[in-house]
Design a binder for these strands. Sequence first.
DNA 1: ATTGTGGCCTGCCCGC
DNA 2: TGCGGGCAGGCCACAA
Length: 262
Amino acid sequence: MPELPEVEAYRRLAEERALGRPVAAVIAPDAWYLKGGLDAAAVTAALVGRRFTDARRIGKLLLLDADGGDLVVGLRFGMTGRLLVDENDAVGELLYSPKTDRPEWDRFALRFADGGLLRMQDPRRLGGVILDPPEARLGVDAASVTPAQLRAAIERSAAPLKARLLDQAHVAGVGNLIADEALWRAGLDPRRPAKSLTPAEHRRLHKHLRAAVADLSERGGSHTGDLRIHRAPGGRCPKDGAELQRATVGGRTTWWCPKHQR
DNA sequence: ATTGTGGCCTGCCCGC
DNA sequence: TGCGGGCAGGCCACAA
């Protein structure tokens, strides 16, 4: 599903192909997909005639800056959303998402004056479009978080470590698969209170979180982790062979190795 | 503020 | 072969 690596790929796609092209029409057939009180008429009025000057990303939120400096389009992809520009895709298949591309799954699109099309394909409709999204509500991006920032984000929380990593207000961009991968690499029990980490464990977590984000981005997606294929009933830890445990942590299905994740 | 829970969305997959 | 239930998780509303 789209976590940070996928949304970063969408950002690069938008940067390469969507900037500088005047918007001629907005296609917003799904009112549910427009968030923050937005409707089709308002988003059309806001965007027709504008061009995008920059494509940014904070966590899993893709931000398109419109010319004039007074308008930002925020795109959220939920679990099954994909971005296509002129039929160019940024990622391969998405885990948990249908592989096909049906017209009725286009929840939002922009027609450019040159005839090109930017569209969001989202079978499960968990994504959305918002104007001027509240960027300040997001924590520091997981791809660039420093050791001190990560420590500050988690060191006083009584919540389970994994829940804290998933909280976009504190660290932005970590989804379920990257959280499990990073904690598995770092050898940390996802159920541990976040504030229980020692200084050495903070360093380990930072190192492995950054490495997991970088590796999975390079490999092509959040589903490419070393743990991922073992997250299934009967799955064993590829490090030490112990049977993986499964539980709900932070409201999400969580798999971890009881032998080396402490 | 923090933390936890439930619901939303819908296609897919399994067992019957 | 069809059917129904369970499942997937990002995000938000809500409760205490």
